[in-house]
Computed example of a mutant assay.
Amino acid sequence: MSRIRILFEKRGLFVFVNHMDLPVVFSRAARRAGLVQEFTQGFSPHPRISLAPPLAIGVEGLAEPADFWFEQWNSEAARRWSEALPGGLKILKWAEVDGVSLAKLAEAALYRVRGASAPFGEKEAAALAEEAGRINALLDCRVEDGSVLLAVRDLEHCGAGLFVKALAAAGLCSGWGGLRMERLAVGGWDEEKRSVVPLV
């Protein structure tokens, strides 16, 4: 049995598909590609899958990690599986892994937050940094090309919804409709480089 970690992107209309529905989408595509997944034990077995911390609906994920267990695996299997996925989902990279679980490794995320109709700058960065800092989740915050790049930890409590509330409370956006948000990476945190290290 092979444990395969992928990095995938979730874009376009697929950003409106709930995180909890992704295992079904990936498993159906795997079956169409002729792949055999390992199933959990117990009363209600289901394909063994481990996803990164949830991505909010409406937020693009550009390098989302996930673990899957297959009976057999090779580069041809990866190609077939990626081709069987619906538009908006795409496998970018894969690696056969073992050891520590994905949930323990996914300790940080990097977001890009920008305005839907105007660039973001220091005011928006300050509001986001203050809110992430309030719950001790802030790792890094900077302005780049009209966007705020925000690196955070504690991914269960610090995510897109918190960012929208902080900006709206500061009068810097009207809500979700006034923003464009992407999660650029999920992984470990390299303090020296001040960057999120991908898990594949």
Rank of each mutant, 00 (worst) to 15 (best):
E144K: 09
R80H: 05
P54I: 01
N18W: 14
L13D: 15
L35T: 05
V196A: 01
L105F: 02
N136Q: 14
S75N: 15
L89R: 02
A56E: 06
P53H: 04
A166H: 07
P198C: 02
G161K: 14
I49Q: 09
R180L: 13
D98L: 06
L155K: 02
A56T: 03
A185K: 01
G87K: 15
L55I: 12
F26I: 02
G87Q: 14
S50Q: 10
F163P: 01
V36T: 13
A95T: 12
Q37Y: 11
A125G: 08
V15T: 07
G175Q: 02
L13M: 15
E122C: 12
S101W: 03
A151M: 02
C158E: 06
E38N: 13
E64M: 02
K123Q: 14
M20S: 15
Y111V: 10
A30P: 09
G115F: 09
R48Q: 10
R11V: 11
K93E: 05
N18C: 14
E192M: 12
L167C: 04
R5F: 09
A151C: 10
H46S: 13
A168E: 00
E76D: 15
V97G: 02
R194C: 08
P54T: 09
V148D: 05
I4K: 00
I4N: 05
T40E: 00
G99D: 10
P53S: 00
G34M: 08
G88W: 09
R112W: 08
E64A: 05
G61R: 04
G34I: 00
L55V: 08
V186T: 06
R32G: 03
L139E: 01
S195L: 13
E71T: 14
V15C: 02
E191G: 11
I135M: 11
S195Y: 13
D67K: 01
W69M: 05
E38V: 15
E64H: 04
A132N: 06
A78N: 00
W189C: 08
A169Y: 07
E60P: 06
G99K: 08
S147D: 07
F43H: 08
D190Q: 06
G188R: 10
A84H: 03
E191D: 11
R80I: 05
L110F: 11
P47F: 06
A168K: 14
A106I: 07
A29I: 11
N136R: 15
E122I: 15
G121W: 07
G58P: 00
A116N: 10
L167R: 03
S2Q: 15
N74D: 13
D140E: 13
G88L: 09
L62R: 01
A127T: 02
E130D: 15
E60K: 03
D145G: 07
V152I: 10
W94D: 00
F68N: 08
K123I: 12
L105S: 10
A78P: 05
A132K: 08
R80Q: 09
